[in-house]
């Protein structure tokens, strides 16, 4: 595997406050990562450190194979953190040309990238005339100018209206489809769930989990069941060795699995015991439920 970024025991203190605590994880090529965490959990600080704008207190990080200085490595990275920062008196194209000069890449791709983010017709408008959504899209276009090995986005949909959010998501999905590695920091779970293959969850600067999205919990999912004879159903579920907790909410009975069980097997088991179901659904926890489960587990 190709490691793009590796963090080793990274720590950042702002006075008495520890914003990032002993954080270690690595980013492999080709995956789409989400950094999840509530506001103020240290996501932006972590990104700030690896992007050379925040000084670390201890620990270290390594871009690519670690042979280049951080600022040289950053020329192969595309990143936007927080709000889009450009020169207000320059046009979109002039701003991007400046980025090309800093990154030492040819300005040929400016039109192509402006087109990708849907701003080609506004290329000669001054940046200060842009709406927030356009600014954010320009920032993504700018981050893509060098065809980066990794695209880092920090809260890319923050403060945008629904259309803006939708546009940004579409762009991200399109970029991810091209095979670009993406690191997306967000507190919006459905956003991460929609595009990410891997997640890093942090809270109060500490890592709670890092790995593929579907392995986040050692959970086998749960069944949502409905039957005319509720008492019998409950009794049968309690008698079955695969089930742990069983909750009744209105007409629906939710039964959590403690070992793998297929719906067919359950249906056969219940039918053999003389019970017919009117509803049988097997589900896995959504990212939000998993996230809450995980953060609660850790806080106990």
């Amino acid at each position: 595997m190709n490691t793009i970024l590796r963090l080793n025991n990274l720590t950042k203190k702002f006075g008495p406050v520890t914003a990032v605590k002993d954080l270690s994880f690595s980013i492999e090529k080709g995956n789409v990562y989400g950094i999840l965490g509530p506001n103020g959990s240290g996501k932006s600080t972590t990104l700030g450190i690896v992007l050379n704008v925040v000084n670390k207190t201890s620990g270290d990080f390594q871009w690519f194979d670690g042979t280049q200085s951080t600022h040289e490595a950053l020329k192969k990275v595309g990143a936007i953190i927080e709000r889009p920062n450009f020169y207000p008196y320059m046009t979109a194209a002039q701003n991007l040309k400046l980025v090309c000069k800093i990154k030492n890449v040819s300005p040929d791709k400016i039109d192509e990238k402006l087109d990708l983010v849907g701003l080609l017709d506004r290329k000669d408008s001054k940046f200060r005339t842009f709406s927030l959504g356009m600014k954010q899209r320009l920032a993504i276009g700018s981050a893509l100018l060098n065809d980066p090995e990794i695209l880092i986005l920090d809260e890319p949909t923050n403060g945008l209206d629904p259309q803006g959010i939708h546009q940004i998501r579409e762009i991200i999905t399109r970029i991810a489809a091209d095979g670009t590695t993406i690191l997306l920091a967000s507190h919006l779970l459905d956003e991460v769930e929609k595009v990410c293959t891997h997640v890093v969850i942090i809270r109060k600067g500490e890592k709670l989990y890092s790995g593929p999205v579907d392995q986040m919990n050692a959970s086998f999912g749960f069944f949502e069941l409905k039957a005319a004879n509720e008492e019998k159903l409950l009794a049968l579920l309690h008698a079955h060795p695969a089930f742990g907790k069983v909750i009744q909410k209105g007409e629906i009975i939710t039964a959590f699995l403690e070992e793998p069980l297929e719906p067919e097997a359950l249906n056969t088991y219940l039918f053999e015991k003389g019970l017919t179901l009117s509803q049988l659904v097997k589900r896995k926890e959504s990212l939000e439920e998993q996230f809450l489960l995980l953060t609660n587990e850790m806080s106990v």
Binding site: V53, L74, N85
Partner: peptide, 15 residues
């Protein structure tokens, strides 16, 4: 004030 220094550094300019 435009916070462009931050973006300059992120884009690969060293301090």
């Amino acid at each position: 004030s435009n916070r462009t220094i931050k973006q300059n550094l992120i884009d690969g300019l060293s301090k």
